[in-house]
Amino acid sequence: MFNNLAIDVALGLIFIYLLYSLLASIVQEMVARLFNARARVLTKALRRLLEDDDRSGDLGVFGRFTFFNWFYELGWSVVHFFAPFQNGPFLKKFYQSPSIRYLGENSASARPAYISPQIFSQAMVHLLRGQPEGQASETAAIRNSLAHNTLHLAPDTLTHLRNLFEDAHHQVPQFRINMETWFNETMTRASGWYKRQTQVWLLILGLGIAAVFNVDTIAIARILMKDKNVREQMVRLVANREPSYTAITDTLTRKHILHRDSSYFRQDTAVSILLKDTALIGVYAALRQDAGDAKNVLGVSRACVTDTAGGKRATHCGFTHPYQQNGWLVLAGWSITALAISLGAPFWFDLLGRVVKFRNLPAQQGNTNGV
Protein backbone atom coordinates (compact mmCIF):
# COMPACT_ATOMS: atom_id res chain seq x y z
CA MET A 1 0.00 0.00 0.00
CA PHE A 2 1.25 3.48 -0.89
CA ASN A 3 1.77 5.82 2.07
CA ASN A 4 2.80 8.66 -0.18
CA LEU A 5 2.08 12.09 1.29
CA ALA A 6 0.80 13.54 -1.99
CA ILE A 7 -1.61 10.63 -2.54
CA ASP A 8 -3.03 10.88 0.97
CA VAL A 9 -3.47 14.65 0.69
CA ALA A 10 -5.14 14.26 -2.71
CA LEU A 11 -7.38 11.52 -1.31
CA GLY A 12 -8.52 13.77 1.53
CA LEU A 13 -9.24 16.70 -0.79
CA ILE A 14 -11.11 14.52 -3.29
CA PHE A 15 -13.27 13.11 -0.50
CA ILE A 16 -14.08 16.61 0.75
CA TYR A 17 -14.96 17.77 -2.78
CA LEU A 18 -17.16 14.71 -3.32
CA LEU A 19 -18.97 15.20 -0.04
CA TYR A 20 -19.77 18.86 -0.61
CA SER A 21 -20.51 18.30 -4.31
CA LEU A 22 -23.22 15.85 -3.29
CA LEU A 23 -24.60 18.37 -0.80
CA ALA A 24 -24.55 21.09 -3.47
CA SER A 25 -26.27 18.78 -5.95
CA ILE A 26 -29.13 18.13 -3.55
CA VAL A 27 -29.55 21.84 -2.78
CA GLN A 28 -29.37 22.65 -6.50
CA GLU A 29 -32.06 20.05 -7.16
CA MET A 30 -34.25 21.67 -4.52
CA VAL A 31 -33.84 25.03 -6.25
CA ALA A 32 -34.43 23.48 -9.69
CA ARG A 33 -37.68 21.86 -8.56
CA LEU A 34 -38.81 24.97 -6.71
CA PHE A 35 -38.51 27.07 -9.87
CA ASN A 36 -39.37 24.22 -12.27
CA ALA A 37 -36.04 24.81 -14.02
CA ARG A 38 -36.19 21.85 -16.41
CA ALA A 39 -39.60 22.90 -17.72
CA ARG A 40 -38.32 26.44 -18.23
CA VAL A 41 -35.30 25.23 -20.20
CA LEU A 42 -37.62 23.07 -22.30
CA THR A 43 -39.82 26.11 -22.97
CA LYS A 44 -36.73 28.09 -23.98
CA ALA A 45 -35.75 25.32 -26.41
CA LEU A 46 -39.24 25.21 -27.91
CA ARG A 47 -39.21 28.99 -28.26
CA ARG A 48 -36.00 28.69 -30.25
CA LEU A 49 -37.62 25.91 -32.25
CA LEU A 50 -41.02 27.41 -33.01
CA GLU A 51 -40.45 31.17 -32.92
CA ASP A 52 -37.94 33.40 -34.70
CA ASP A 53 -36.13 34.06 -31.44
CA ASP A 54 -33.32 36.17 -32.86
CA ARG A 55 -33.18 39.62 -31.29
CA SER A 56 -29.53 40.45 -32.03
CA GLY A 57 -30.67 43.11 -34.51
CA ASP A 58 -32.33 45.04 -31.68
CA LEU A 59 -28.91 46.08 -30.39
CA GLY A 60 -27.75 47.51 -33.67
CA VAL A 61 -23.97 47.62 -33.97
CA PHE A 62 -23.62 46.40 -30.36
CA GLY A 63 -25.25 43.11 -31.39
CA ARG A 64 -21.94 42.08 -32.92
CA PHE A 65 -20.36 41.80 -29.47
CA THR A 66 -20.94 38.77 -27.24
CA PHE A 67 -20.65 40.90 -24.10
CA PHE A 68 -23.70 43.04 -24.91
CA ASN A 69 -25.67 40.10 -26.29
CA TRP A 70 -25.15 38.18 -23.05
CA PHE A 71 -26.69 40.91 -20.90
CA TYR A 72 -29.47 41.48 -23.44
CA GLU A 73 -30.40 37.79 -23.46
CA LEU A 74 -30.18 37.72 -19.66
CA GLY A 75 -32.77 40.48 -19.52
CA TRP A 76 -35.09 38.56 -21.84
CA SER A 77 -34.58 35.44 -19.72
CA VAL A 78 -35.92 37.37 -16.73
CA VAL A 79 -38.89 38.55 -18.80
CA HIS A 80 -39.65 35.01 -19.99
CA PHE A 81 -39.30 33.69 -16.45
CA PHE A 82 -42.41 35.67 -15.45
CA ALA A 83 -44.09 35.71 -18.88
CA PRO A 84 -43.00 32.54 -20.71
CA PHE A 85 -45.26 33.09 -23.73
CA GLN A 86 -44.61 36.78 -24.33
CA ASN A 87 -43.93 37.42 -28.03
CA GLY A 88 -44.59 33.73 -28.68
CA PRO A 89 -48.16 33.30 -29.99
CA PHE A 90 -47.59 29.94 -31.66
CA LEU A 91 -45.62 28.67 -28.65
CA LYS A 92 -48.65 29.43 -26.50
CA LYS A 93 -50.90 27.56 -28.95
CA PHE A 94 -48.52 24.61 -28.82
CA TYR A 95 -48.64 24.41 -25.01
CA GLN A 96 -52.44 24.79 -25.02
CA SER A 97 -52.94 21.87 -27.41
CA PRO A 98 -54.48 18.80 -25.70
CA SER A 99 -51.41 16.67 -26.49
CA ILE A 100 -49.20 18.95 -24.35
CA ARG A 101 -51.53 20.64 -21.87
CA TYR A 102 -52.05 17.62 -19.64
CA LEU A 103 -48.44 16.45 -19.47
CA GLY A 104 -47.70 18.78 -16.54
CA GLU A 105 -47.54 17.29 -13.08
CA ASN A 106 -50.09 19.66 -11.52
CA SER A 107 -51.38 23.20 -11.70
CA ALA A 108 -48.24 24.54 -10.01
CA SER A 109 -46.09 22.78 -12.61
CA ALA A 110 -48.41 23.12 -15.57
CA ARG A 111 -45.67 22.90 -18.18
CA PRO A 112 -44.01 19.50 -18.59
CA ALA A 113 -40.28 19.05 -18.06
CA TYR A 114 -40.01 16.46 -20.82
CA ILE A 115 -41.79 15.95 -24.14
CA SER A 116 -41.11 12.93 -26.30
CA PRO A 117 -40.35 13.46 -30.00
CA GLN A 118 -43.47 11.48 -30.91
CA ILE A 119 -45.71 13.72 -28.78
CA PHE A 120 -44.08 16.81 -30.30
CA SER A 121 -44.71 15.69 -33.87
CA GLN A 122 -48.24 14.61 -32.99
CA ALA A 123 -49.06 18.01 -31.48
CA MET A 124 -47.57 19.80 -34.50
CA VAL A 125 -49.61 17.70 -36.95
CA HIS A 126 -52.78 18.34 -34.97
CA LEU A 127 -52.16 22.08 -34.98
CA LEU A 128 -51.29 22.19 -38.68
CA ARG A 129 -54.17 19.95 -39.63
CA GLY A 130 -56.74 21.83 -37.62
CA GLN A 131 -60.31 20.85 -38.46
CA PRO A 132 -60.27 19.73 -42.12
CA GLU A 133 -63.13 21.20 -44.13
CA GLY A 134 -65.52 18.70 -45.69
CA GLN A 135 -63.76 15.55 -46.86
CA ALA A 136 -60.29 17.12 -47.14
CA SER A 137 -57.48 14.70 -46.33
CA GLU A 138 -54.93 15.25 -43.58
CA THR A 139 -52.23 15.88 -46.18
CA ALA A 140 -54.34 18.49 -47.96
CA ALA A 141 -55.16 20.22 -44.68
CA ILE A 142 -51.48 20.47 -43.70
CA ARG A 143 -50.54 21.64 -47.20
CA ASN A 144 -53.19 24.35 -47.04
CA SER A 145 -52.11 25.44 -43.55
CA LEU A 146 -48.48 25.81 -44.61
CA ALA A 147 -49.34 27.47 -47.90
CA HIS A 148 -51.58 30.15 -46.35
CA ASN A 149 -49.89 30.29 -42.91
CA THR A 150 -53.22 29.95 -41.13
CA LEU A 151 -51.40 29.57 -37.77
CA HIS A 152 -49.45 32.82 -38.27
CA LEU A 153 -46.09 31.12 -37.90
CA ALA A 154 -42.91 33.19 -37.78
CA PRO A 155 -41.25 33.46 -41.22
CA ASP A 156 -38.20 31.29 -40.53
CA THR A 157 -40.23 28.62 -38.74
CA LEU A 158 -42.76 28.57 -41.58
CA THR A 159 -40.02 28.21 -44.17
CA HIS A 160 -38.40 25.34 -42.28
CA LEU A 161 -41.69 23.47 -41.85
CA ARG A 162 -42.43 23.89 -45.54
CA ASN A 163 -39.02 22.44 -46.36
CA LEU A 164 -39.58 19.49 -44.02
CA PHE A 165 -42.96 18.87 -45.65
CA GLU A 166 -41.43 18.98 -49.13
CA ASP A 167 -38.60 16.67 -48.03
CA ALA A 168 -41.27 14.21 -46.90
CA HIS A 169 -42.91 14.41 -50.38
CA HIS A 170 -46.13 15.45 -48.66
CA GLN A 171 -46.29 12.15 -46.77
CA VAL A 172 -47.51 12.82 -43.23
CA PRO A 173 -45.69 9.86 -41.55
CA GLN A 174 -42.36 10.95 -43.04
CA PHE A 175 -43.16 14.58 -42.18
CA ARG A 176 -43.56 13.53 -38.56
CA ILE A 177 -40.22 11.71 -38.64
CA ASN A 178 -38.54 14.84 -40.06
CA MET A 179 -40.02 16.98 -37.29
CA GLU A 180 -38.91 14.46 -34.65
CA THR A 181 -35.34 14.63 -35.96
CA TRP A 182 -35.50 18.43 -35.85
CA PHE A 183 -36.85 18.26 -32.28
CA ASN A 184 -34.16 15.80 -31.13
CA GLU A 185 -31.36 17.99 -32.45
CA THR A 186 -32.69 20.97 -30.53
CA MET A 187 -33.19 18.94 -27.35
CA THR A 188 -29.58 17.77 -27.50
CA ARG A 189 -28.52 21.41 -27.37
CA ALA A 190 -31.07 22.14 -24.64
CA SER A 191 -29.46 19.42 -22.52
CA GLY A 192 -26.19 21.31 -22.85
CA TRP A 193 -27.93 24.53 -21.82
CA TYR A 194 -29.29 22.88 -18.71
CA LYS A 195 -25.91 21.38 -17.89
CA ARG A 196 -24.23 24.80 -18.09
CA GLN A 197 -27.02 26.31 -16.00
CA THR A 198 -26.51 23.58 -13.40
CA GLN A 199 -22.76 24.24 -13.31
CA VAL A 200 -23.39 27.94 -12.70
CA TRP A 201 -25.75 27.10 -9.84
CA LEU A 202 -23.23 24.62 -8.41
CA LEU A 203 -20.54 27.30 -8.58
CA ILE A 204 -22.72 29.78 -6.68
CA LEU A 205 -23.84 27.15 -4.17
CA GLY A 206 -20.26 25.91 -3.86
CA LEU A 207 -19.07 29.35 -2.83
CA GLY A 208 -21.88 29.59 -0.29
CA ILE A 209 -21.15 26.12 1.10
CA ALA A 210 -17.44 26.87 1.28
CA ALA A 211 -18.15 30.02 3.30
CA VAL A 212 -20.75 28.43 5.60
CA PHE A 213 -18.73 25.27 6.33
CA ASN A 214 -15.39 27.10 6.02
CA VAL A 215 -14.12 24.63 3.43
CA ASP A 216 -10.84 26.39 2.70
CA THR A 217 -8.90 24.22 0.24
CA ILE A 218 -5.58 25.95 0.93
CA ALA A 219 -5.90 25.56 4.70
CA ILE A 220 -7.13 21.97 4.38
CA ALA A 221 -4.19 21.04 2.17
CA ARG A 222 -1.71 22.60 4.62
CA ILE A 223 -3.33 20.76 7.54
CA LEU A 224 -3.19 17.44 5.72
CA MET A 225 0.45 17.96 4.74
CA LYS A 226 1.63 19.06 8.19
CA ASP A 227 -0.42 16.93 10.56
CA LYS A 228 0.13 13.19 10.18
CA ASN A 229 -2.60 12.27 12.68
CA VAL A 230 -5.22 14.34 10.87
CA ARG A 231 -4.11 12.88 7.54
CA GLU A 232 -4.40 9.32 8.84
CA GLN A 233 -7.84 10.05 10.31
CA MET A 234 -8.99 11.41 6.98
CA VAL A 235 -7.70 8.35 5.10
CA ARG A 236 -9.55 6.10 7.57
CA LEU A 237 -12.71 8.16 7.09
CA VAL A 238 -12.39 7.78 3.32
CA ALA A 239 -11.86 4.03 3.65
CA ASN A 240 -14.93 3.67 5.88
CA ARG A 241 -17.20 5.92 3.84
CA GLU A 242 -16.15 5.01 0.28
CA PRO A 243 -18.44 1.94 0.00
CA SER A 244 -21.45 3.87 1.32
CA TYR A 245 -20.87 6.63 -1.22
CA THR A 246 -21.36 4.11 -4.00
CA ALA A 247 -24.91 3.53 -2.75
CA ILE A 248 -25.48 7.28 -2.25
CA THR A 249 -24.33 8.10 -5.78
CA ASP A 250 -26.48 5.34 -7.26
CA THR A 251 -29.51 6.63 -5.33
CA LEU A 252 -29.06 10.20 -6.56
CA THR A 253 -28.48 8.99 -10.11
CA ARG A 254 -31.74 7.04 -10.04
CA LYS A 255 -33.47 10.17 -8.77
CA HIS A 256 -32.08 12.05 -11.81
CA ILE A 257 -30.16 14.48 -9.58
CA LEU A 258 -26.74 13.35 -10.79
CA HIS A 259 -26.49 13.16 -14.57
CA ARG A 260 -23.85 11.10 -16.32
CA ASP A 261 -25.23 11.71 -19.82
CA SER A 262 -27.16 14.33 -21.73
CA SER A 263 -30.67 13.08 -20.82
CA TYR A 264 -31.61 15.95 -18.54
CA PHE A 265 -35.32 15.94 -19.23
CA ARG A 266 -36.34 12.30 -19.34
CA GLN A 267 -38.87 11.05 -16.83
CA ASP A 268 -38.59 14.15 -14.66
CA THR A 269 -42.35 14.54 -14.37
CA ALA A 270 -42.49 11.14 -12.64
CA VAL A 271 -40.17 12.25 -9.81
CA SER A 272 -41.86 13.31 -6.59
CA ILE A 273 -41.19 16.58 -4.82
CA LEU A 274 -37.99 16.51 -2.80
CA LEU A 275 -39.64 17.37 0.50
CA LYS A 276 -41.79 14.24 0.19
CA ASP A 277 -38.91 12.01 -0.88
CA THR A 278 -37.79 10.15 2.25
CA ALA A 279 -34.89 8.47 0.45
CA LEU A 280 -33.32 11.80 -0.47
CA ILE A 281 -33.93 13.19 3.00
CA GLY A 282 -32.03 10.20 4.40
CA VAL A 283 -29.17 10.79 1.98
CA TYR A 284 -29.07 14.46 2.91
CA ALA A 285 -28.92 13.59 6.63
CA ALA A 286 -26.05 11.15 6.04
CA LEU A 287 -24.11 13.73 4.05
CA ARG A 288 -24.57 16.34 6.76
CA GLN A 289 -23.22 13.88 9.33
CA ASP A 290 -20.20 13.16 7.14
CA ALA A 291 -19.67 16.89 6.64
CA GLY A 292 -19.55 17.32 10.40
CA ASP A 293 -17.10 14.44 10.77
CA ALA A 294 -14.86 15.76 8.03
CA LYS A 295 -14.87 19.24 9.54
CA ASN A 296 -13.92 17.86 12.94
CA VAL A 297 -11.09 15.83 11.43
CA LEU A 298 -9.72 18.82 9.54
CA GLY A 299 -10.16 21.19 12.43
CA VAL A 300 -10.89 24.26 10.30
CA SER A 301 -13.25 26.15 12.58
CA ARG A 302 -14.26 29.67 13.41
CA ALA A 303 -15.03 29.19 17.08
CA CYS A 304 -14.56 32.01 19.53
CA VAL A 305 -11.44 31.83 21.71
CA THR A 306 -10.68 33.63 24.95
CA ASP A 307 -7.30 35.26 25.47
CA THR A 308 -6.18 36.13 29.01
CA ALA A 309 -2.76 37.49 28.10
CA GLY A 310 -1.64 40.56 30.05
CA GLY A 311 -4.18 39.98 32.79
CA LYS A 312 -7.04 41.06 30.54
CA ARG A 313 -9.73 38.75 29.33
CA ALA A 314 -10.57 39.18 25.63
CA THR A 315 -12.71 37.06 23.34
CA HIS A 316 -11.89 36.85 19.65
CA CYS A 317 -14.25 35.36 17.06
CA GLY A 318 -13.61 34.66 13.41
CA PHE A 319 -10.79 32.78 11.71
CA THR A 320 -8.98 31.34 14.70
CA HIS A 321 -7.01 28.65 12.91
CA PRO A 322 -3.33 29.60 12.36
CA TYR A 323 -3.60 28.68 8.66
CA GLN A 324 -6.47 31.15 8.16
CA GLN A 325 -4.98 34.44 9.25
CA ASN A 326 -4.83 35.90 5.74
CA GLY A 327 -8.30 36.86 4.55
CA TRP A 328 -7.30 36.91 0.87
CA LEU A 329 -5.94 33.36 1.12
CA VAL A 330 -9.16 32.26 2.80
CA LEU A 331 -11.17 33.77 -0.07
CA ALA A 332 -8.87 32.04 -2.56
CA GLY A 333 -9.35 28.74 -0.72
CA TRP A 334 -13.13 29.13 -0.83
CA SER A 335 -12.99 29.96 -4.53
CA ILE A 336 -10.94 26.84 -5.28
CA THR A 337 -13.50 24.78 -3.35
CA ALA A 338 -16.38 26.36 -5.27
CA LEU A 339 -14.69 25.61 -8.61
CA ALA A 340 -14.11 22.02 -7.51
CA ILE A 341 -17.74 21.61 -6.43
CA SER A 342 -18.94 22.97 -9.81
CA LEU A 343 -17.25 20.01 -11.54
CA GLY A 344 -19.99 17.81 -10.10
CA ALA A 345 -20.17 14.81 -7.82
CA PRO A 346 -19.83 12.17 -10.60
CA PHE A 347 -16.40 13.55 -11.50
CA TRP A 348 -15.12 13.37 -7.91
CA PHE A 349 -16.78 10.01 -7.28
CA ASP A 350 -15.01 8.44 -10.26
CA LEU A 351 -11.71 10.08 -9.31
CA LEU A 352 -12.01 8.92 -5.70
CA GLY A 353 -12.50 5.34 -6.85
CA ARG A 354 -9.45 5.54 -9.10
CA VAL A 355 -7.22 7.02 -6.39
CA VAL A 356 -8.38 4.48 -3.77
CA LYS A 357 -7.76 1.66 -6.24
CA PHE A 358 -4.33 3.04 -7.11
CA ARG A 359 -3.41 3.48 -3.44
CA ASN A 360 -4.41 -0.10 -2.60
CA LEU A 361 -3.01 -1.69 -5.76
CA PRO A 362 0.46 -2.67 -4.39
CA ALA A 363 -1.12 -4.32 -1.35
CA GLN A 364 -3.48 -6.32 -3.56
CA GLN A 365 -0.58 -7.42 -5.74
CA GLY A 366 1.42 -8.41 -2.66
CA ASN A 367 -1.44 -10.54 -1.37
CA THR A 368 -1.72 -12.22 -4.76
CA ASN A 369 1.99 -13.02 -4.88
CA GLY A 370 1.87 -14.34 -1.30
CA VAL A 371 -0.88 -16.76 -2.27
Rank of each mutant, 00 (worst) to 15 (best):
M187F: 02
L151M: 05
R231F: 00
H170T: 06
R241C: 05
F213V: 04
E185L: 06
L203K: 09
T157P: 01
D227K: 03
H169G: 08
A247Y: 14
N149I: 05
Y245F: 15
V215Q: 10
N144F: 04
H169Q: 12
F165M: 09
M187R: 09
F213S: 13
K195C: 10
D167Y: 11
T157F: 10
P243S: 09
W201Q: 10
L207D: 05
E138R: 12
T150L: 11
A168H: 01
A211L: 06
A219Y: 01
L203D: 08
F213W: 15
P173G: 02
L205Q: 02
A210S: 13
Q197T: 10
T181V: 12
I142D: 06
Y245L: 09
E232M: 10
H148Y: 08
T246R: 15
M187E: 02
T139C: 10
Y245Q: 07
W201Y: 11
A210Y: 06
K226F: 05
R143E: 14
A141G: 02
F183Y: 12
V215Y: 09
E232Y: 09
W201F: 07
T186I: 05
N178H: 14
R143S: 12
A210C: 04
H152A: 12
E180V: 00
M187N: 03
I220W: 13
I209V: 06
D156Y: 09
L153C: 04
S145Y: 05
P173Y: 01
N184A: 07
E242R: 13
P243W: 11
Q199F: 11
W182G: 01
N240H: 10
E138S: 05
R162T: 05
I142S: 04
A247N: 11
A190I: 01
Q171I: 10
S191H: 04
A219M: 02
P243V: 03
S191D: 09
T181S: 04
F175C: 00
E232Q: 14
L151V: 03
